[in-house]
Design a protein around this nucleic acid. Structure first.
Length: 772
RNA sequence: GGGCGGUUAGCUCAGUUGGCUAGAGCGUUUCAUUGACAUUGAAAAGGUCAUAGGUUCGACUCCUAUACCGCCCACCA
């Protein structure tokens, strides 16, 4: 066996020997940083900012789509910017951090607000770079000099400014409607974040005056304020408008019967109890009929009977019951009440197998409690209107259009106001200040020196604590809806006092990220903003179309009057070899970094692009990645073959375009050149149309089965004989191929590129894209 | 409840406006054994394109219905 030795080219391509050095060469060479040239239209992509605290998963590896576009445009000569960033990911990060604390036997309640915030900040700081290094390992050609973190001071400043502008425009407001509240995590959520789960719960039929009603939530009935029936329901028509006295577990209550179209006469008994404080539908109904909102569950998910117990002359039996329920968790109290209903003969029957959908906390899985808590909202209708128009007019194009444009319009048309308040510490606080002297009823919770959680109103604490103590120890401030507030952090505009406290609600993370295109580029006036906004393409998976993309459209248009991006490209979801969603619980997760270590970044990137239609899932398996590793190796060995033959020819092989060879060309050469041109045209077209799979497949097919298997095999004798024309054509086709493949497989192509003679010393990354 | 997508070779999927013997990757079978690559080469097997109708000279491709799978949205107590 004769070993062929070529300098720098082993028999097999080993990504481990090249990738790191090549990436460093690109980065230190400054090729990721665009030169601003006012004569040229830039090409810009903002990376969908990953959670700074999370390692990469396969979904992030799909950002390869962006790198392909970026590398392609860079080679086209466009000033090209791919701007990376990291997200503080409010609730996600605080949740992960609390779990970490729990493992160490600690709880967030052992720390005051500032300390907890700083601990989380340190934790994120430690993890931030893992993510960045991993993206480098995939070869992503991002401009790291422009890396942004969502809590960078200038980013936050713009976000606060947006809030103030919206507030002054009447688009940001405070209201106490029913919010999806997780009593375990202690925060409210927006409607988008609610995860609905099918559950089987008992449906209780209970006697209710002259009626029987059905409910899954008997614990809320104490604060029912009305009964609703369908106005067309003959059975109950005569009761409409009447006020009835109904016997309950705590004695008789007064109840008015009201009409409501939406009551289904066929459901249960056709009568619905109305509980405005704990049911979204009832809340709206209550507004219509002016019913009081009377909560019976508190923010910790416990029954609150203080309204009852504070009454005079309560019958001892009822007092005993109320005391028994008071302070119990919802589920526990419900069980007790069902027992008491039985005892009183009020329970008619129980349907144990009632299935319904319940709103759950997407984070911790607890049942969400709709609670009437004041929150900050964004009025979305006027913003959505413009976002719809922009897409209709084609200012922003959504791809694949067929599937996702409809989703976009449906959501925008039915949009509800956006709750941006979160009751967590990890994030910027809403820039609103309350005067404690003007609002002595503001409820405060804070930590005293012994780390004991304390609740009370400002009035309660003012006599025993200094303002400074309150200000620094405060955990949360829950101002009643009627409390007055101001945008200023100076003196109170009403009383001139300085006992003012900032809102403790922090912004929904998505409120920050919805402004990413403007905050990262330096709105309202900076060189980058003026040059790069609007960006060219926004590429992401469809799961955050509403969370992020739609909201960026609204916010970008609101602040700048221009769309934030010209194209929205929704890439495939990565699934396992059997088309199933990857999940830790299923044990089918493939770690991208492991695959890079084993087969190289190029192999993984190519596998992710190969064989998926736009908008559909992409199945990934180790077998497939290995197959693509083999392709990289094939490409590498064609390079070795060419070197070997040129070296053996012992003559200078002219550049293809320097010679008259083109006019006296051999039929075989002519054919491969023609096929190459066809390929270059189709790859270019496919990239322009976001058909990355087609581009990848044609590159694979041409390289392996046309160029290597046919042309190269057929002309081996000519190469061996040192035929200068043949060798020139061979090398030319190969060099062009390296360029065409480079956006997909940047490492192997760049490393081979370096071994060939060329007119300019430039690396492949900034070579010129082939044009025909 | 409303809407969307899918159903093509053993597996995962392409098939862009209806038109040549329906393709790829992986897997399988047979042969080749080493001056580019065994991470290879040559060849092969394997599909009533979910089902039933319809439009058309012609349907994997268009229309209707059905079945199953997946996803999104929705306040049914």
């Amino acid at each position: 066996m004769v070993e062929i030795s070529l300098p720098g080219m082993d028999k097999n391509y080993d990504p481990k020997l090249t990738e790191e050095a090549i990436y460093r060469m690109w980065e230190t060479g400054g090729y990721f940083t665009p030169t601003i040239d006012p004569q040229k239209k830039p090409f810009t992509i903002l990376l969908p900012l990953p959670n700074a605290n999370d390692p990469m998963h396969m979904g992030h590896a799909m950002f390869t789509v962006q790198d392909i576009l970026i590398r392609y445009h860079r080679m086209m000569g466009d000033p090209t910017l791919w701007l990376p960033g990291g997200d503080h990911a409010g609730i996600e990060t605080q949740y992960v951090f609390e779990k970490k604390l729990a493992k160490e036997g600690k709880s967030r309640f052992q720390f005051d607000r500032d300390t907890l915030y700083n601990m989380i900040a340190d934790y994120v700081e430690q993890n931030k770079n893992i993510n960045r290094d991993q993206m480098k390992r995939l070869g992503f050609s991002m401009d790291w000099t422009r890396y942004r973190y969502s809590l960078d001071p200038n980013i936050v400043a713009t976000v606060l400014d947006t809030f103030k502008t919206m507030y002054n425009d009447g688009l940001a407001y405070r209201d106490a409607r029913l919010v999806n509240y997780c009593t375990k995590d202690g925060t409210g959520f927006s409607d988008l974040e609610v995860k609905y789960d099918e559950r089987i719960d008992p449906l209780y039929y209970m006697k209710y005056g002259p009626f029987t009603i059905a409910t899954v939530r008997p614990e809320t009935k104490f604060r029912d304020t009305a009964l609703a029936v369908n106005p067309k329901d003959k059975r109950y028509k005569k009761y409409i408008g009447q006020t009835l006295e109904i016997m309950g577990l705590l004695g008789p209550i007064q109840m008015t019967v009201i009409p409501d179209q939406e009551v289904d006469p066929k459901f249960g008994t056709g009568i619905m109890k109305v509980t405005p404080a704990h049911d979204p539908h009832d809340f709206e109904l209550g507004k219509k009929f002016n019913l009081p909102v009377t909560p019976i569950i508190d923010q910790r998910g416990k029954m609150d009977f203080s309204w009852f117990l504070s009454q005079n002359n309560i019958e001892p039996k009822y007092k005993e019951r109320a005391e028994k329920y008071h302070g119990k968790k919802v589920a526990e109290a419900r069980a007790l009440m069902v027992e008491d209903l039985k005892a009183d003969g009020l329970l008619v029957k129980v349907d144990e197998q009632y299935t319904h959908r319940v709103g759950m906390c997407y984070r911790c899985g607890s049942v969400l409690e709709p609670l009437p808590i004041p929150q900050w909202y964004i009025k979305t209708k006027p913003l959505a209107k413009k976002a719809i128009e922009a897409v209709k007019k084609g200012k922003t194009k959504i791809f694949p259009k067929k599937r996702f444009e409809k989703m976009y319009f449906d959501w925008m048309n039915n949009i509800l106001d956006w709750n941006i308040s979160r009751q967590i510490v990890w994030g910027p606080r809403i820039p609103i200040w309350y005067c404690l002297d003007c609002n002595p009823d503001i409820a405060l919770s804070f930590l005293n020196a012994e780390h004991v959680k304390m609740f009370g109103t400002y009035k309660d604490f003012a006599s025993t604590h200094s303002f400074d103590e309150i200000k620094h120890g405060i955990q949360t401030l829950s101002a009643p809806l009627k409390a007055t507030y101001a945008l200023t952090d100076g003196a109170c505009t009403t009383c001139g006092g300085t006992h003012i406290l900032q809102e403790t609600d922090t912004f929904d993370t998505w409120f920050l990220s919805s402004q990413w295109p403007i905050t990262t580029l330096g709105f309202p006036d900076s060189k980058d903003f003026n040059y790069f906004y609007p960006t060219s393409v926004l590429d992401t998976m469809w799961d955050i179309l509403f969370f992020w993309v739609a909201r960026m459209m609204m916010m970008g248009l609101y602040r700048t009057g221009k769309v934030p991006f010209e194209v929205v490209h929704l890439h495939s979801r990565v699934v396992d070899a059997h088309g199933k969603k990857m999940a830790k619980s299923k044990g089918n997760v493939i770690n991208p970094i492991d695959m890079v270590g084993k087969y190289g970044a190029d192999a993984l990137r190519f596998a992710l692009m190969f064989g998926a239609a736009p908008g559909s899932d992409i199945a990934i398996s180790e077998d497939k990645i290995r197959g693509m590793r083999n392709f990289a190796n094939k490409l590498w060995n064609i390079g070795r073959f060419i070197h070997m033959n040129i070296d053996a020819a012992k003559a200078e092989i002219p550049f293809y375009d320097d010679t008259r060879l083109q006019t006296v060309i051999d039929a075989n050469d002519k054919q491969i050149i023609s096929e190459l041109n066809t390929l270059a045209v189709s790859v270019t077209k496919n990239i322009n149309h976001y058909r990355f799979s087609d581009a990848a497949q044609s590159l694979y097919e041409f390289t392996w089965h046309q160029f290597a298997d046919v042309y190269l095999e057929k002309n081996k004798d000519r190469f061996k004989a040192g035929d200068a024309q043949a060798l020139s054509v061979l090398r030319h086709v190969y060099i062009i191929l390296l360029k065409l493949i480079h956006p997909f497989m940047p490492f192997v192509t760049e490393s081979i590129w370096g071994t060939f003679p060329r007119k300019h010393a430039d690396p492949l990354i900034i070579s010129h894209w082939p044009t025909v």
